[in-house]
Structure formats: C-alpha cells, structure tokens
C-alpha cells in the first residue's frame, strides 16, 4: 500500500502523518508542493499546519501549488484523498470539497480532545468502524465549517457529512460544538466519497501514551479497505 503526504512550506503535521501511515503499514513518500508529478500512490494526504503561513486565507495559496493540479486529477479519477486540518482548508480552497472554513466562533485557537459522531458508515475511509463515537484531537484557529442552506441540504441528502462534534454520549449540541461549525460538522466528503476533509487529527491519537488511541481505528480501517 502506497501513500503520499504533500509537503507545503509551512506544513507542520507532515512528519506526524508520515509516522502514522508507516506505523499502519503504508509505504509513504513525501511529495514537495512544487513537484509536477505524483509518485504511484493509493492515498494522498494533505497534512495539517500553516501552509504559506495561512496568509491571505487559510489554505488559499497552498491550493494554487503546482502539485494540486495532479491531486485534483487523481481525485477526479476516484483516488483517495484525505485532508486534515490545514489539508481540509486546502481541499476546500481547491474546490475538491464544498463549503468553507471560517475563524472559530470565539476567535481563539483551540487545542483539545473532542468526541465525534460518525455520520456515514459506508465509505472507504472508515466503513469498518465498530464504534460510532470516537475521540480525536483538534488544534486550529479556522475550523468553523460553513455552507449555505441549499448546499447543506445536498450534503445531508447525499450522505456527505463525515463527522459531527458531539459529547461523550454522542449528543450533538451547541455545547459540544468547539468552533461554531454549522450543524457541528467536523468533516465532509465530496460527492463520490473518495475525498475526505476533517479538522480533527487522527495522527495524534495512535498509541496508548498519547491522549487516546482512536486514530488507530481510522488508519487501520483505511489500510483494511485498500487491501481488499
């Protein structure tokens, strides 16, 4: 199984993501944003960080990188693309995912554990999950997901909502919404469900020494899916 992590100037979760992918059996390549060709790969990951300092608008300049054309091509052919945090912002800016990510509701950077309710259990990324609530970590300043009402309805109708922020019991409410995202949305799919963008960081929860291990479920599942 081959994975590729795209490295932008200012990416800072690229190493963490590579470590996670390798731990779960991927042979990973780091791909420089200025490259014009992708290596042979089964999965592309756009990691978290502050590509181009998040100047102008988060993910905006990153989405104009040379390699992004190839990522779009890969996605349009049905290839699996995952964007975490800043990677999610880049995917949105690149037009691969609907909506936009605004400044957090309380205008502060938030770093904490959150519970996520799994909304869609029939996709490549995590169809094998036994749990329907998982704990992951968020660390962002612009994670306040927004789409217009008609688009939101489309997301709901087409089952494109991946996760919602919830409490430990799975209750989705304003008090479990850390950043003001519309309908507590923490991650979304594209139409074909081969592109996933999410604010939480599964790569920070991959062993017992860290604050949780639910990220392992995530990577194990992608691996399982890809090896079938």
């Amino acid at each position: 199984m081959l994975s590729s992590v795209i490295v932008f100037p200012g990416s800072n979760c690229d190493r963490d993501m590579a470590v996670a992918l390798e731990k779960f059996g991927f042979k990973n390549s780091m791909v420089w944003h200025n490259d014009t060709e992708l290596p042979k790969t089964d999965l592309i990951v756009l990691p978290g960080g502050f590509s181009y300092g998040d100047y102008l608008r988060c993910g905006c300049i990153g989405s104009k990188s040379k390699i992004i054309e190839k990522v779009i091509e890969f996605a349009n052919k049905g290839g699996l693309v995952l964007g975490i945090c800043n990677g999610f912002q880049i995917l949105v800016e690149a037009g691969l995912l609907p909506g936009t990510l605004l400044r957090n509701k309380y205008l502060r950077f938030i770093c904490k554990d959150v519970y996520l309710k799994i909304k869609n259990n029939s996709n490549t990324f995590y169809s094998k999950f036994k749990k329907d609530i998982i704990k992951l970590h968020i660390a962002h300043n612009e994670g306040n997901y927004f789409v217009k009402n008609d688009e939101l309805k489309k997301l709901q109708d087409k089952n494109q909502i991946a996760f919602e922020y919830c409490d430990i019991n799975g209750e989705v409410s304003e008090s479990s919404n850390p950043n003001g995202s519309i309908n507590n949305i923490a991650g979304v799919f594209n139409d074909n469900q081969n592109v996933l963008g999410m604010m939480p960081h599964p790569e920070r929860m991959i062993d017992k020494y860290l604050s949780g291990n639910d990220g392992s479920l995530f990577f194990n599942n992608i691996k399982h899916k890809l090896s079938i």
Binding site: D16, A20, G48, E203, S211
Partner: peptide, 9 residues
C-alpha cells in the same frame, strides 16, 4: 488550550 500542545505526536 490556545497553545497547540500535541503537534509532533
């Protein structure tokens, strides 16, 4: 909570 304390894994 305003400081990223888990990056680098």
């Amino acid at each position: 909570k305003q400081y990223d304390h888990t990056v680098m894994g």
